[in-house]
Write a protein that binds this DNA or RNA. Structure first.
Length: 768
DNA sequence: CAGTGAGCGAGCTTCCGCTTGACTT
């Protein structure tokens, strides 16, 4: 048995380190946190100094057991990350495996190299309990917020909902952005552009934007007779510098933009590259590169592109609350241009490699030329710009250098000839909807959430149905374009969609209601600065200037009364019930509100309590197609309560009724439902219904092609198939479904591909 | 994708941060 046990957080790291330390050292991984507050109980004793109860997480029982065995008779070295969570992991590991924390040696290394590790091992310290306490304060705070707020939502809005310090702010950002977009008033202006003759011909734009179509037209008329002369010519050099190497957030942004990856996809692919030993750790907020990496980059750049392309750079980490436990994301070997097992991995690796190498390269040098062109009889000028790349620098690797825009030689006072001109109507743009990476970027900017939680948070707010990732159709607008060519003025109108969007995060009605409720009753919690302020206090705890009990007490004495107060909010208020008017038949009020299952119409009031026998139970109905809670009127709503509607009887005297269900309109006889997609449930006649019902009955009778007891050959909406009740299998085209034997059917079912597991699919449960 | 049509009860749900699991011979 080895005399020393080194415990790190990740198994990939363990493997590497084991190679650097001798046989005296055994290196194992804790796989992150091993203990946590219980999932089911509150786990915090508020009465007694917020004392937390910890238990070994279910998925870590085995790991803890094996660490315990390995620890026997060994010196324990705790080598978790050098941040708040890492310190807490070290402490929790001790507690979990029965080692007195003060007996263990705590080490931290900032890069995984032999010298760095040897140095760390030579200078161990003990666990920093102040830092551990700061982590516990963070953990308890999140539990208090999450487990007191969520149940309020279960009672007021919908069962199973959730709220928390991070997710509720993420949802709020999206809700508020959508409202800004809705409030945006489109205005249009005209961009006037011209092409002048020269070698080569070149474009220029009018310095002023034109507001109305009549003045746009006037302008072109004026240009028709005008003379043009070169005015001020300005030339100045410019530089462009590379960006810092990737952090989790910037990698997600760039992979989203360039490769179209979702945040989750990016992380899965990066994890594989990390496990393969191709890149450094992918969950980081640091832009720092180790001296070894900087050196390797320099060597590679000089050898490949020449000395003048190399430029050593050190980047400051910009994000608030960064903990800098790791390096930036970079290739483990700076001179390895390609890595990865498949196309997806190769593309992401290439991106990481380029960004890291480019970050150590010289800036690109450009020459910018700006030329003003005077118009006779006008105040405004045309402006032509040219740009020539003198030295590509980092763009040699990273790319991104636009093509040169070359202007002909132009001298002040020189006369110019107009080739053509145009005035194109353009609409002002509303604020941009968040894409997944853009939301991550915003959260990071606000210091909310950590690199390891960005992807899961985005998943959670979608799972809870607060947010949908989707395409949004824009508004159709008419645009005018005037052109002047060969002295002929022409006018054209066309349609364009403005404000359309693809793959963006859009809030649901549920998100709006929950956000409005939280903002009204828990303004401080969903405040964009809440986390930043909490972080300041956590730092004070780590510095020994504040105790964690005191911090939590201060927070809770303010927070808990808000929870109590929110109980008085009525469901109707929270669900933003809208009174539409009174039903003329019954005199009962008709309201539209957000119900447990989405938007709903309600006729009559809910009983005050369970024993209230005076009040008749209210009736519910869905909103008619095409209406929303915002625009529904009493007139639209009333017919919905006419359903279900009795429309007649079958030959056997059974009643036929029509209604609208989850999947559209249907007619019903006894227990048989028949979809009536093309008919209006308010108008469908008895004769039409009977016809549809007979057709459905016939289809059902023809459904079973062959019956082998357990196995059946059935006729489905997508053609014949085999089913055993659980699994289904399609039948090959060349086979006659009527002639299939039981053995053949069984074989086909066994060979049927397993249900397609969708790569992007998330589990509805919170297991990931 | 294999075909659906709730709303009661009881008992359940939930947070944020670390990390990667996997049934056997």
């Amino acid at each position: 048995m080895a005399k020393n046990l080194v415990i790190v957080e990740s198994p990939a790291k363990a493997k590497t380190i084991a190679g650097f330390l001798g046989s005296e050292y055994r290196v194992e991984s804790s796989y992150g946190h091993v203990r946590d507050l219980p999932k089911k109980d509150f786990g915090v004793d508020i009465e007694h100094g917020f004392k937390p109860t910890y238990e070994i997480s279910v998925d870590k029982q085995k790991i803890v057991k094996s660490l315990k065995t390995a620890a026997k008779g060994s010196t324990i070295w705790l080598a978790s990350d050098g941040d708040r969570e890492g310190e807490a992991i070290a402490w929790h590991v001790c507690k979990a495996i029965g080692v007195t924390p003060s007996d263990a040696k705590r080490i931290v290394f900032h890069e995984i190299t032999k010298p760095a590790i040897t140095e760390a091992v030579a200078k161990p310290r003990s666990i920093d309990m102040k830092l551990v306490e700061a982590q516990q304060a963070r953990r308890v705070l999140d539990r208090l917020v999450g487990y007191e707020l969520s149940p309020v939502l279960w009672r007021k809005v919908r069962t199973g909902l959730s709220a928390g310090r991070v997710q509720s702010v993420a949802v709020r950002l999206i809700v508020e952005r959508e409202r800004e977009i809705k409030a945006h008033e489109y205005s249009s202006f005209f961009k006037v552009a011209a092409v002048f003759s020269g070698k080569p011909n070149f474009p220029a734009e009018l310095s002023e934007k034109i507001k109305s179509d009549s003045s746009a037209k006037d302008w072109l008329t004026k240009l028709k007779g005008a003379r043009f002369k070169v005015g001020k010519v300005e030339q100045k050099p410019g530089t462009r510098s590379p960006s810092a190497p990737f952090t989790t957030s910037t990698l997600q942004q760039e992979a989203g933009r360039r490769l179209g990856y979702s945040v989750r996809q990016t992380m899965i692919v990066a994890q594989k590259l990390y496990e393969g030993g191709h890149i450094t750790y992918m969950r980081t907020d640091s832009t720092n590169l180790s001296p070894i990496a900087v050196e390797a980059a320099k060597k590679y750049i000089k050898a490949t592109y020449g000395d003048k392309y190399a430029r050593e750079r050190h980047y400051q980490t910009a994000s608030r609350g960064a903990q800098e436990a790791h390096e930036a994301i970079r290739p483990t070997h700076m001179d390895r241009l390609k890595a990865g097992m498949d196309h997806g991995q190769s593309k992401l690796y290439e991106l990481i490699w380029k960004r890291a190498v480019a970050s150590q390269m010289a800036p690109a040098l450009v020459q910018k030329t700006e030329v003003e062109i005077d118009i006779s009889g006008a105040h405004d000028v045309f402006v032509a710009t040219g740009e020539v790349l003198d030295f590509d620098g980092y763009q040699r690797v990273w790319g991104g250098g636009k093509e040169d825009r070359i202007l002909p030689e132009l001298k002040e006072g020189q006369e110019l000839k107009l080739v053509s001109a145009s005035a194109l109507e353009t609409y002002s743009r509303p604020p941009a909807r968040y894409s997944e990476p853009a939301l991550v970027r915003k959260l990071e900017e606000l210091g909310i959430g950590r690199p390891s939680t960005y992807a899961p948070t985005i998943g959670t707010i979608q799972d809870r149905e607060y947010v949908e990732k989707k395409d949004v159709e824009g508004e159709n607008k008419e645009i005018k374009e005037f052109t002047l060519e060969k002295s002929k003025l022409a006018e054209k109108t066309s349609q364009v969609a403005v404000g359309s969007d693809q793959n963006k995060l859009v809030p649901t009605g549920l998100a709006e209601i929950v956000t409005d409720f939280l903002v009204k009753y828990f303004a401080d919690i969903v405040d964009y600065d809440f986390t930043a302020k909490a972080e300041d206090e956590l730092d004070e705890i780590a510095d020994g200037k504040l105790t964690w009990e005191r911090m939590l007490d201060k927070f809770y004495t303010k927070f808990h009364p808000l929870v109590t107060k929110s109980a008085s909010a009525s469901r109707e208020e929270v669900s933003q019930a809208k009174k539409l008017g009174k039903d003329p038949k019954t005199g009962l009020p008709v309201i539209a509100r957000f119900g447990r299952y989405g938007p709903v119409l309600q006729l009559g009031k809910a009983a005050k309590d369970k024993d209230d026998r005076e009040t008749e139970a209210p009736r519910f109905a869905p909103l008619p197609e095409g209406t929303t809670l915002d625009d529904i009127t009493l007139k639209d709503a009333l017919p919905m309560f006419e359903l279900p509607r009795v429309i007649g009887k079958t030959k056997d005297g059974e009643e036929i009724s029509a209604d609208i269900g989850r999947y559209g309109p249907y007619v019903k006889v006894g227990k048989l439902f028949v979809s009536i997609k093309d008919h209006d449930p308010f108008k469908v006649t008895e004769a039409e219904a009977v016809k549809l019902i007979d057709a459905k009955k016939k289809a059902i009778s023809e459904k079973v092609i062959a019956d082998f007891g357990k196995l059946q050959v059935l006729n489905g909406p997508y053609g014949p198939y085999i089913s055993d009740g659980k699994r289904n299998a399609r039948i090959p085209k060349e086979k006659d479904p009527k002639k299939i034997t039981e053995a053949e059917a069984k074989k086909l079912l066994d060979e049927a591909p397993a249900r397609k597991s969708r790569w992007q699919g998330r589990k509805k449960t919170n297991s990931s």
